[in-house]
Computed example of a mutant assay.
Amino acid sequence: MSAGDSGHRFDAGRRWEASLSLVFAARLSGAAEATRTRLIRARHHGPLRVQRPFYPEQRQIDLADPCHVYLLHPPGGLVSGDALKIGVNVEASAHAVLTTPAATKLYRADSYGVVWSQTNRLEVEDGGILEWLPQETIAFDGSRGEQRTEIALHGEARCLGWEIMALGRPASHLPFESGRIEQRFQLTRDGRPLWLERQPLDPVHPRFVGRWGQGEATVQATLWAAGLPDPGAAVTTVRAALPANPSWAVTQRHDVLLLRYLGGSRNEAWALCCAAWHALRPLLAGRAACEPRIWRT
C-alpha cells in the first residue's frame, strides 16, 4: 500500500491529514477613512473549514473593524492518526478574532496506540491584532497525541489567547487514567523567544498527582496576552477583576502576561478566562470585549 493511501489504513500506519490556511488584511470600507479586516484567503484540505466572516462590533473610525471567524472541524474531535494543521496570518493593522463553535474532543487511542496531532501556527504582522479564543478541549481517557501552538509576532503586533483543557469526564465517572498528551507553546517577537513551554500530561507520572505538579486537577487553563502597553499594570487590572480564588494566578514574564488556572471545573476556568479577557481587551485593542454569538448557543 502506498504512502498516499495511509489515510484509508486501519493499522499502525494510519494518518489522516487536514489543514486550513487563513490570511486577514485591513482594507478600506465604504465609509471614508474607515477600514475593515477582510478574510482575503482561506485554503483548506480535508475536514477543516470556516464559516463566513462576521462583523458584530461597532465601527470605530480610527481602528480596523475586527473580523470574527469560527473554525469548523465537522468530526468534532481527534482520533488516532488525525493530523490537523491550522495556519493564521494577520497582516499589518488587521484585527482577527477566532473561536470554535463547540468543545474539541480528544478521543481514546486505538489498539495500536497511534497518536493524533494538532499544530497551530499563528503569525501577526506589525500593528496587527489576533485574538485566539477556542472553546475548551476535552481529553478522553486513553487519548494519545500532541498539541503545538506557535505564535510569531512582528514589530508592534499584539495577541491574546487561551487554552482550556479538561482531562477525562468526571461527570460520567470516566477519569483520565491512561494515555499521554503533550502540549508545546512557543511565542516569539521578531524571532526572539518570549515564552517557551513544554507540558506532558501523563496520569501515571508522579507530577500528575503531586502537589508540586498537577495535583490531580482535572481542568487547567492558560491565558496569554502579548503587546500590552504596560503589562505590569495589566496584571493589577486582572487581579482586581477576578474573584479571590486559590485556583488561579497571574504574572508577567518579559512583555507577556500569563494567567494560569488549575482546578476541577470547566465552567470556573471558562468564566475566569472570559473575565480576564473582558478586563484586558480595552488595554490591548482599545475596544470593549464583544463575545462571539456562538458562545451563547
Score class of each variant (00 low, 15 high):
G128W: 02
A152I: 04
I294R: 06
T222W: 04
R192Y: 07
L72N: 05
R148W: 12
G168C: 04
R189F: 04
G210A: 15
R281G: 08
E177D: 14
A34F: 10
G76Q: 03
R148P: 00
G142R: 07
A83G: 04
Y55Q: 14
F208N: 09
R36H: 02
S265Q: 10
P134N: 09
H254R: 09
W295F: 11
H154M: 06
P206C: 09
W16E: 00
A275D: 13
S265P: 01
Y70K: 03
L196Q: 10
A31N: 05
Q220L: 12
L153G: 04
V256C: 14
H278C: 15
M1K: 14
H44R: 11
Q58Y: 06
H44L: 09
V115P: 00
E150A: 12
R14N: 12
L174Y: 03
D202S: 10
H254G: 03
D141P: 02
S111G: 12
S117Y: 02
E17N: 07
D190K: 01
S143K: 09
W295S: 06
R158H: 06
D110L: 13
R239A: 14
R41L: 15
L133W: 12
L284D: 07
D5P: 00
E182R: 15
L130E: 06
D126H: 07
W16F: 09
T236F: 00
R108D: 09
W132Y: 06
G128L: 08
E136H: 07
L133G: 05
H44C: 10
R260W: 02
A102L: 09
L22C: 07
H8N: 14
H73C: 10
A25K: 08
G213H: 01
P200Q: 06
Y70D: 04
H95Y: 11
E125A: 15
R266L: 15
A271N: 13
W162R: 01
A103G: 11
L71A: 03
H8M: 13
G4L: 13
R158V: 08
E177V: 11
I40A: 11
L72H: 03
D82N: 11
L284H: 07
G7F: 09
F24G: 08
C273T: 13
Y55G: 12
I294W: 01
L257E: 08
W195R: 10
R43V: 08
L39S: 02
L280D: 00
W248Q: 12
I138H: 01
G286P: 05
P47H: 08
A240S: 12
W270N: 01
G179E: 13
T119H: 06
Q60L: 11
A285N: 02
T137C: 14
D65L: 15
G7K: 10
Q58E: 14
S178R: 14
P56M: 07
V235A: 13
I86Q: 05
F176H: 03
P206I: 02
R260M: 02
A288C: 09
R293W: 07
G232H: 06
A271W: 04
L280A: 03
L98F: 01
E125K: 14
D5L: 15
E150K: 13
H8D: 12
A103H: 00
G81D: 06
R27Q: 13
I61A: 15
G161H: 03
H45I: 11
W277D: 00
E216M: 09
P47N: 01
C67R: 01
F176L: 10
L63H: 10
H95N: 11
E197V: 03
G30Y: 02
F10R: 14
E17P: 04
E182S: 11
G128Y: 04
R27P: 00
A32Y: 00
